[in-house]
Structures are given as structure tokens and as C-alpha cells.
Design a protein around this nucleic acid. Structure first.
Length: 426
RNA sequence: GUGAGGUUAGCUCAACCUGGCAGAGCCCCAGAUUGUGGAUCUGGUUGUUGCGGGUUCAAAUCCCGUACCUCACCCCA
């Protein structure tokens, strides 16, 4: 019997994992520098949590969730997104007693969709949530956070689109209004839109069918009051910060809990699923889950899509990682080397890794040429050699693979050497 | 859930239309070459042709089913 991974569930092999680690590490640095703290919640939650928050009518809940019963007959679901879980945890552990809570997370999510470019059944998201704050200030903070993170990671061709969905009450009222409008023109709608009319009217604005466009153009505009003031404040703030956004009334998030300011970020090189990051405000969610009154907003970033975007640009990920990567040619096997994995070798490696330097430890082979070849293949910038010659002198040879210049560094100062070294990109 | 195209060596693919010994490049292994790389040369290994069934003297090739992959729709990050 031959086994293979389930449909839409990918193994991430070592070469690929290095890219994930690179992105995750940089993301942590960035988010923590902005005062966000990581939270980890269970992958499994009560089904009801997702039905409540995401919405019974949404595609995610009614046809994409991995749901099953446990032995006690309770319905459990593999999380299709993480906002609900984070909100649940924040309420359960009273994290909001001291006011605003800034949290981030990263991990696997599950949706039983047909796999496609940039879409897996198990996929990974990085997300940030600002809980317990209703002001436009936080919407702005969130947008700047998303924009800043994508820039910090070097994502090419980023476009941010924003929209105002209105407050809960406004959205409710508007939905009724346009449901009435589109019902009047039901015969002219495409098959998909007829379905949307029943399920999620706002989605009609997302339709790409030619024949529906005129009708969409002539649809009544949303009458907004409080939410529009809020929205304008956000737009104003973005302008002041010099972040370009496009106001697009077609941005309608598929999850029920969104209101007020929502956004979607697209990037180049992603195929038809080009949304790399999306989010917005979800006032009312905390209260729905039994928490206190209070606003909240957040976004989620698709890690697979992020990596795709980073690989497609002019300055691909491999290159970005290269200058920070060191390949360690293990001493074992060099002529005259008596020691196998010596304590000293291990100590040097641990110190390098601890200090945040990306290290690839080469397979133990006697052939130095083999090591250099492997170092190149791994896109490392430096190759560290500690054979018997170096070891006897308490030195490590550092070879810059780009310039081919090699120098010997005192084995106890190797970390300091890299931290102080100014590395010119090749 | 719908549609289209795929699946042959570790990888990329040829052979399929028109049934007749399953092939190439890369990788890998050994050597030229026991401490300095991306190269070259020589020699070598590599298969349940996704799986199951059918047609046939004979199936990688034609037919049916099925699993998975890819792309797109829907939807979403």
C-alpha cells in the first residue's frame, strides 16, 4: 500500500521550510516591535463558535468546514480561520480587562475547498488583531501594520483596496434595501448572482459578469452616517502617512462579522487568487461571544500566497535570504581530524544559531569540494570550515562564497565577527 | 460543488495520435582529483508506465472506473 498526503494538504520539505522560517522570523520581529504579542489557540474548536461568528450562510461554514463529532457527540471543527478562536480566548481569559489587547498568531487553517494555485485545504495564516478598541485610530494602526509588514517583507506589487461596509445597523438596513432593488431585476441577474441574492446580497457587487455590471452601477448607494465619518478619518490618516489605497466598493468580505472599514491587499505573481491579506473591523463580535461591548479589528495574511509573491519578484526570496545564511562544513572526516562531533564544534554552532544567524549544517563528508558545492546549492553566502588545520589553531575559516575571499577567525569570536560584519550584497 | 488538462526513473520530460524490446537530459554513485565551489571527461545504478478493471495474440499507448496533481469557476488568505 502506497500512502500519499491528502488532497490539498502539502508536505513542506526542508528546502521550503527554510523560507517559511525566514518569513516567520521577520514577521515576529516586525509585529513584536509594534507591540503585538503572539497567542496560540487550539486548532480544534466547538463548531458553534464558527457558525456564530463567520455566519451560517457563508460558504466557509456551510460547505468548507472539516466538522466531526467527538465520542461524546459534540460537534467539533478544525479552525477555518483564527479570529473567532482568538476572540474566544481573549474573553475566556479576561485579556481585555486592561483595555486594548494587541495579538498576533500564525498557524494552519483548514477549509475543504478544491485546491488551486494559492489555495490549499490546509493552509497557513499570519494574523494580527487589535481587540477592545472602537476608534478609527485602530483601523489606521491596523492598515499601517499590514502595509508596513508587507513592505518589510519585500512583497512586490502590493495594492491596498478599502471599503466601508457601514455599522451593523447600517449594513443591515442597506442589505434590505439592495435586496429589494436586485429582486426587482432578478431576471437580468446571472445565475451566480441569483444565488447571492438569497445568500449574501453584498456579494453581487463582486460579480465579474458583463451583463450584471450596469445593474450594479445603478444600484442605490449606501447611506452612511457614523461609519462614514469613521471611514474618512481612516482615509485621512492613511494619506497623511503616505500610504496609497484605492477605495473600492466591491470589496465585500465573505465573513459575516465584518463592518465599518474593511480592506483587501493584492500582490503580483499570484495567479487568480491574488488576495494576499485581508481584514477589517468586526465590532460586535466580542459581545456576541459573551464578552464586553467593544470594537475590534484585525487582518489575516496567507503564508503560502506570501511565499509565492516573494518568489515571483525581481528580488526573489532566495536572494534575500542568501546574505544572511551561513553554511557550516562539519570538521568530521577531514584528514587528520580525530574528533567526531566535538564539543567545541557544537558550541560554535549553537552560539551562531542563538545569535539569530541562519545556519545550515552540512552533511558530514571528507570532501571539502562537496561542502562548497552544497553551500552554493543552499544559496548560502558564507561557508565555515573547521577542519583539523583550523581546529589545531583554534580558528574557523570563513569563506565568502561571493568574493571567494577566505579568512581565519578566532573560534571564540565567530559570532561577534558576523554581527559586526557589514555584508555587501552580491 | 462545476469545467478543462495532466500522472512514464529521485526530478523534468519523450515514446501515446497510428498497440509490437520503456527512452533521454538532469540528479545520484565511482574514478580522473585525500583541504577549496558552480566546470569537464570516463564508467555505473535507476521503473508494478498512479491504481483497478475491460478490449486484444500483444496495452505506457485504445475503452471504463477511481485516486491524486495542475489551472480556472465558485469562494477565500
Amino acid at each position: 500500500m502506497k500512502y500519499q498526503a491528502l488532497k490539498g494538504m502539502s508536505d513542506i520539505l526542508p528546502g521550503e521550510v527554510r523560507k517559511w522560517q525566514f518569513v516567520e522570523k521577520r514577521t515576529r520581529h516586525f509585529l513584536e516591535s509594534r507591540g503585538f504579542q503572539e497567542i496560540r489557540t487550539p486548532i480544534l474548536e466547538q463548531t458553534e463558535l464558527f457558525q456564530r461568528t463567520i455566519g451560517e450562510a457563508s460558504d466557509i461554514v456551510h460547505k468548507e468546514m472539516y466538522t466531526f463529532e467527538d465520542r461524546g457527540g459534540r460537534s467539533l471543527t478544525l479552525r477555518p480561520e483564527m479570529t473567532a478562536g482568538v476572540a474566544r480566548a481573549a474573553i475566556e481569559h479576561h485579556l481585555l480587562r486592561s483595555g486594548i489587547e494587541r495579538l498576533y498568531y500564525m498557524g494552519p487553517m483548514f477549509r475543504a475547498e478544491r485546491p488551486q494555485a494559492g489555495r490549499r485545504r490546509q493552509f497557513h495564516q499570519i494574523g494580527a488583531e487589535i481587540l477592545g478598541a472602537g476608534g478609527a485610530e485602530q483601523d489606521l494602526e491596523l492598515l499601517l501594520l499590514a502595509d508596513g509588514l508587507l513592505k518589510y517583507l519585500g512583497v512586490p506589487g502590493v495594492r491596498i483596496k478599502v471599503n466601508n461596509l457601514g455599522s451593523r445597523a447600517e449594513r443591515q438596513k442597506y442589505e434590505n434595501e439592495i435586496r429589494k432593488y436586485f429582486s426587482g431585476h432578478e431576471k437580468e441577474l446571472c445565475a451566480d448572482c441569483k444565488f447571492r441574492l438569497e445568500k449574501n446580497v453584498l456579494r453581487i457587487f463582486d460579480c465579474k459578469v458583463e451583463d450584471c455590471q450596469g445593474m450594479i452601477e445603478r444600484a442605490p448607494k449606501m447611506v452612511l452616517d457614523i461609519s462614514e465619518k469613521h471611514f474618512q478619518e481612516v482615509l485621512h490618516g492613511l494619506k497623511q502617512e503616505g500610504v496609497d489605497v484605492i477605495v473600492d466598493h466591491r470589496i465585500v468580505r465573505g465573513l459575516d462579522y465584518y463592518n465599518f472599514c474593511v480592506f483587501e491587499v493584492t500582490a503580483e505573481g499570484l495567479g487568480s487568487q491574488d488576495a494576499i491579506c485581508a481584514g477589517g473591523r468586526y465590532d460586535g463580535l466580542l459581545k456576541d461571544l459573551g464578552g464586553q461591548e467593544g470594537g475590534a479589528c484585525g487582518f489575516a495574511l496567507g503564508v503560502e500566497r506570501l511565499l509565492m509573491a516573494l518568489s515571483s519578484g525581481a528580488n526573489p526570496l532566495e536572494k534575500m535570504m542568501s546574505d544572511r545564511t551561513v553554511y557550516f562544513a562539519s570538521s568530521v572526516g577531514f584528514p587528520g581530524a580525530r574528533e567526531r562531533v566535538t564539543n567545541k564544534e557544537n558550541e560554535i554552532l549553537l552560539k551562531l544559531i542563538e545569535s539569530g544567524i541562519r545556519v545550515i549544517v552540512g552533511k558530514r563528508t571528507a570532501d571539502i569540494r562537496e561542502h562548497l558545492k552544497k553551500a552554493n546549492e543552499a544559496h548560502a553566502r558564507f561557508c565555515l570550515i573547521r577542519g583539523s588545520v583550523e581546529a589545531s589553531k583554534k580558528k574557523v575559516a570563513v569563506k565568502d562564497l561571493a568574493s571567494r575571499i577566505q579568512e581565519e577567525i578566532d573560534e571564540d569570536k565567530i559570532v561577534e565577527y558576523f554581527l559586526s560584519k557589514e555584508i555587501k550584497s552580491r
